[in-house]
Design a protein around this nucleic acid. Structure first.
Length: 391
DNA sequence: ACCATTAACAGTT
DNA sequence: AAACTGTTAATGG
């Protein structure tokens, strides 16, 4: 393993393609194969790092094989037939059986959090418990985890190539573990454009929707810390859930913006300055009879509903985030579908430290860490050990 | 086809 | 943002 130089790392070719991305991407975690009598695939040591509350297992060889040989499982369907809409839907990206195995693996191996935070609404403060389980890994592009000695990742400032000062972040950034980093590389490759340019994600957000009560409200991932026209790949694993999209209101008025994977930090306006993103209404459809005809005009919100099944991947790009809202609504346990548990993994690229702070704040927070308990069949707070937690 | 019940949806807090 | 409330739509007996 010729180890690349720092310089090589920070100047990852501007040459698109060609060189396997593996060369360009952040090294991640240990990879010390033990050569015993056991198949090396099953002896790969877990990803470890001081920022992790627990070691994170590597993918079982059968899942890894499935990912490498059968991905993408289908050619994506393009959805760009509406204003500002530009997305790809792989149905699926990972073959269902493999996706289901991956779902169980990640649910069992990753640390999750039920983040609580306060939101200021005008003059009132409300306590909010995020209605889903979350976790996150990654670092914005102003820093990078570099393999210093063997199996030792240190955080360096991208420009100065010197150790990142503790004061740079209000959180403890964590490198993307090997099991997710493999996915990251493959998803990047699957997104090569006509010029063979691929996105370069540096963040991996994971959501676990345990049942139909877990959800995410309408929002856009359009914070400035993602740069303009962000490319965000969203992978679904496990139970099927509805994914809703609707165009942001067109009319003037309005203020708020929604942000990122949840509450955007401070309010900011869209890159184009119009700054409006709301989850409110608009409507009309005109089905109702009680509605007086005069009261509706314009703003016909086009709404899209799609089922996201295990292994499906949606990639939102271009003007999508600045013009569309999306959500995973609550669902009653009907055909048992919404009760099956679903994991969503999103890959994205943050360009400034504010993004890192925001993501760790809202996806890890400062509360306890939970892990899936296969016997109890639910997330269980990990007591005892722990934990110096972020920040 | 009708009614009763529940889920989805729009609007407010 | 997310919970809550009132209204409409879907469902199923």
């Amino acid at each position: 393993m010729a180890k690349r130089t720092l310089d090589a790392f920070f100047k990852p070719s501007t040459t698109p393609s060609k060189r396997p991305k593996a060369e360009l991407t952040e090294p991640n975690t240990v990879s010390t194969p033990k050569t015993n009598n056991i198949p090396i695939e099953d002896t790969k040591s877990p990803s470890q790092h001081p920022s992790y509350p627990i070691p994170i297992a590597q993918l079982p060889s059968h899942i890894e094989a499935g990912l490498e040989h059968a991905t993408p499982a289908t050619t994506p369907r393009k959805l760009n037939n509406q204003p500002h809409l530009d997305l790809l839907h792989f149905q699926p990206y990972i073959p269902r059986p493999t996706a289901n195995e991956l779902f169980k693996f990640l649910r069992r191996e990753l640390p999750f959090y039920r983040v609580q935070y306060t939101a200021r609404r005008g003059d009132t403060e409300t306590q909010i418990t995020t209605p889903r389980w979350t976790t996150v890994f990654g670092i914005d592009e102003t820093s990078a985890f570099i393999e210093q000695d063997e199996n030792n990742l240190v955080l360096l400032d991208t420009k100065t190539k010197t150790p990142t000062p503790k004061t740079k972040y209000q959180c403890t950034p964590r490198p993307i573990p090997a099991c997710l980093d493999l996915l990251r590389k493959q998803v990047e490759a699957a997104n090569a454009d006509a010029d063979n340019k691929t996105p370069r994600y540096n963040f991996c957000l994971v959501n676990y929707y345990a049942d139909g009560d877990d959800s995410i409200a309408f929002h856009s991932d359009d914070e400035r810390f993602l740069g303009p026209e962000p490319n965000i790949a969203s992978l679904s694993l496990g139970g099927e859930r509805d994914f809703l999209m609707k165009h942001k209101p067109l009319d003037g008025g309005n203020v708020n913006r929604t942000g990122g994977c949840v509450p955007a930090a401070p309010v900011m306006s869209r890159p184009d300055g119009t700054g409006a993103t709301r989850a409110s209404s608009t409507v009309s459809g005109g089905t109702s009879s009680t509605d007086s005809p005069r009261s509706r005009v314009a703003t016909v919100p086009q709404q899209i509903k799609m089922k996201l099944g295990s292994g499906d991947m949606v990639v939102m790009r271009g003007a999508t985030q600045s013009n569309w809202l999306h959500s995973i609504p609550k669902r009653k346990g009907r055909a048992g579908e919404a009760t099956r548990g679903r994991i969503n993994i999103t890959f994205r690229r943050a360009v400034v430290p504010g993004g890192t702070n925001n993501y760790y704040h809202y996806n890890v927070g400062s509360g306890g860490m939970y892990r899936w308990d296969d016997v109890a069949r639910e997330m269980v707070l990990q007591n005892g050990k722990v934990e110096r937690d972020t920040q």
